[in-house]
Simulated assay, not measured.
Amino acid sequence: MTLLDAHARTGRVARINPVAKLGATAVLTLPLVLTLDAVSAATALALELMLFPFAGLGWREFWARTWIVWLLAPLTALTIALYGEPSGTVYVDWLLVHVSEGSLQLALATMLRVLAIALPSVVLFATVDPTDLADGLGQVLRLPARFVMGGLAALRMVGLFVDDWRALELARRARGVADRGRLRRFLGMAFALLVLSIRRGSKLSTAMEARGFGAPVVRTWARPSPFGAAEWMLIALGAAIAAAAVAAAVWAGSWNFILGPS
């Protein structure tokens, strides 16, 4: 467990059942998926930013976990602004590049939408321990134990990828084959990591079967997974943010139901 993981899992939000975090994320993001407008996304994002300080993450930890979202959201907006379907006043029209009033509005809405959907997901699940998640899936949602334990084992193995990558890199450097051709080196190491992961997964699967993880019996759980008032409050908070975003978009007349008739 890294230092960031240790900090993320000591706050009040970390003690909330991971199933409630799944539910809160679902009810929050569903309205944002069904519409594409700047008002609803901006409203949801503003409310989320007000609540992030209570998630138990320090600012340094918050930026360390979410910087990729802040980077990719503007890049997505840039692509839509340059190559989106033109409408309204056209500002630039050159070859495949069409910058218009409509494409700029769509780009802004898309950027805010990506931020409003991705940021709460990253922040909430930064406080999730894989074992707690497996306990919640098995005890609260009553998912099959075989599926839950397999998913838990896979999540536990993800952290080993970084160590394996570093070991492969050091081994190739020791043999003098990692000084040139960055793309070729990356592809070679990626293939080696894939082979190593498949072998490790096969061994882990055999070991789990040998220890009875796949037995067709009712499984017992070492730790209870409570689901109480705090969990329902988190889900209600997500629903309240979603309702406020929808209400703001409808009031502003910008609600754009993407599944409706064009």
Rank of each mutant, 00 (worst) to 15 (best):
G201H: 04
A38P: 13
R185C: 13
V122R: 03
A154V: 14
N256I: 09
L75D: 10
S225D: 07
A81P: 00
A240W: 07
R166W: 06
W63N: 15
L75A: 08
Q139H: 13
A245N: 03
V99K: 00
A20S: 02
L75Q: 09
P31A: 02
L45R: 00
R199N: 11
R219G: 01
T131V: 12
A154T: 10
L4H: 09
V39E: 06
R200Q: 14
A244T: 04
N17V: 06
A174R: 08
S100F: 05
A42V: 04
R180Y: 09
M233P: 07
K203T: 07
L193G: 03
R185Q: 14
L45W: 01
P120T: 06
G136K: 00
L187P: 11
R60L: 11
L160E: 13
V27H: 00
L155Y: 06
A249V: 03
W221Y: 10
T127R: 02
W67V: 10
M189Y: 11
L193D: 02
L108H: 05
G88R: 03
V128M: 05
T206D: 14
G58F: 03
Y83W: 12
L112V: 09
D129N: 08
D93M: 13
A107P: 00
V27M: 04
N256A: 15
L96R: 14
L75H: 13
R65I: 04
A171M: 05
D132S: 15
L141N: 15
T10W: 08
A252V: 10
A244V: 03
M157D: 13
T29R: 09
I198H: 11
L78F: 08
S121V: 14
T76Q: 15
A118Y: 09
A116K: 00
P226H: 08
A145H: 15
S254P: 02
V250F: 13
R200P: 06
A116Y: 00
I258C: 05
